[in-house]
Amino acid sequence: MAKLVQFDRIGGPEVLTLREAALHDLGPGEVRLRVDAIGLNRAEIMYREGAYFYQPVFPSTLGYEAAGIIEAVGEGVTEFSSGDPVAVVPAFLQNEYGTYGDSVVLPAAAVVPRPEQVDAVTAAAVWMAYITAYGPLAESGRVRPGDHVLITAASSSVGLAAIQIARHIGAIPIATTRGANKKQRLLDAGAADVIVTDDEDLPARIAEITGSKGVRLAFDPIAGPGVETLAKGIAPGGYLVVYGALDPRTTPLPNAQSFPALNSSTYTLFEITSDPERLRRAVAFVDAGLASGSFAPVVDKTFDLADIAEAHRYMEANGQVGKIVVTVTHDGTTS
């Protein structure tokens, strides 16, 4: 038997239930993972609430990230064996697979080797954040050494990964946060400057920091009407990349009559994780950063799997800086 977190209806954290479930048989191309740690993501809140870009199929599990040990492999899986330490990248739909449990079945294509120096908690905090930031900042070639990059909602795990990746490629990260209480932690995390949007005029501060040049790229998970304010701080010919929808209001396309010419696009890490060659390059990039010490995932707090609802409440409170990770106990021990 396995323990799985499931829910039977749309709702708040209280709908999440830890249940005993029979182990699924492995199909071709699948692996069974003994889960040691689970990385939480805001996408899972949206999925649980019915606000994600696809809907749950009940009873539904959830979860995009985890780290653990391969327990068994299905037909056709040759790259992994029982006992291999691995991590899970978001390369599947949550209404087909999920990571919230102590033993889960996943597609082998969504599993990557875990480097020896990376423990399970750290590995569970890596892939959603770093691949999301990697695409627009590193793979695209849009950001060059010396460029200013604006990273909004920068205290999230993706925001912190973006700060580290910007530094890694020689760019200058400017972070935003709504309240001053997170400013010093963002500076400590590597931000060259921090703009407190509740207290400061964003375009004016960008102009001050960049010498009126503007930023080369703005990397934004919020969307909504606020993108018009962001556009005022982007250099002519620069890029606005929206990778989330935390603001559910309509997101306008910046008006060329009001702002310098810029390139505006949406982005999702599935563009990379669904393409084996792009994923291979992303994994190599992130693994190199982990090995060199350039990348160090920030874990804000850990919870036990039995406290999954409380972990979701903590995430919804928006007080964390970095990743929330859930640990899993096996036979009286936590890995």
Rank of each mutant, 00 (worst) to 15 (best):
V126Q: 08
V321S: 14
Y54C: 13
E65W: 00
M1R: 08
Y134D: 04
R144E: 15
G74R: 03
A67P: 02
T132R: 00
N255D: 11
G233C: 04
D36F: 14
G74Q: 11
A288N: 12
L262M: 12
G101W: 14
V241F: 11
A291V: 15
S212Q: 14
S335A: 15
E271D: 14
F259L: 08
T334P: 06
A51Q: 05
D307E: 13
H168M: 12
Q320W: 08
A296V: 12
V57C: 05
L290Y: 13
V227R: 01
V5H: 07
A245K: 05
T229W: 00
L262Q: 07
K183H: 11
E208T: 13
A66V: 05
I163K: 04
G39M: 10
R216D: 14
S258T: 08
A120P: 01
G83A: 08
A125G: 00
L137I: 11
D287Y: 12
A154N: 07
Y97L: 07
I165V: 10
F58I: 00
D119Q: 03
R280A: 15
R281Q: 15
G190Y: 00
S212M: 11
S103A: 15
A231H: 02
F92T: 14
A154T: 01
A161K: 01
M46T: 00
T78Q: 13
I165L: 13
V241M: 07
P221Q: 02
V215K: 00
P115K: 06
D220T: 08
T327P: 12
G12Q: 10
V328N: 11
T210S: 05
R144I: 01
D275E: 09
L26M: 15
A180M: 07
V158H: 09
Q55L: 11
K323Q: 12
M1C: 07
T329K: 07
S335I: 11
F259I: 12
K182V: 03
E75N: 08
I131C: 04
A124R: 09
V89A: 05
D102Q: 14
V104M: 09
I165N: 02
T251V: 05
R278Q: 12
S81I: 10
G214F: 03
L217Q: 05
P252W: 03
L305D: 10
N255E: 01
A67D: 05
G170Q: 06
A161L: 08
P145M: 12
H148V: 02
E277C: 01
G68S: 11
A311G: 10
H312T: 02
V86W: 06
P221L: 00
H312C: 04
L93D: 15
P248F: 00
T176H: 02
P145W: 07
E310M: 06
R205C: 00
Y134Q: 07
S258V: 06
T99S: 12
I308M: 13
I70E: 09
V57W: 04
V105Y: 14
Y47L: 13
F53V: 13
A2V: 15
L253A: 02
A180D: 06
T251C: 10
N41W: 03
D220W: 04
V112Q: 10
I38D: 07
R278F: 11
S103C: 15
G74D: 09
L160S: 04
D307N: 05
H312D: 03
A291R: 15
R249N: 04
G289Y: 08
T251S: 06
V149H: 01
V121T: 12
G50E: 01
A288T: 10
S294T: 09
I222Q: 00
P115W: 02
S155P: 08
T197R: 14
I272R: 01
A87Q: 10
A120Q: 03
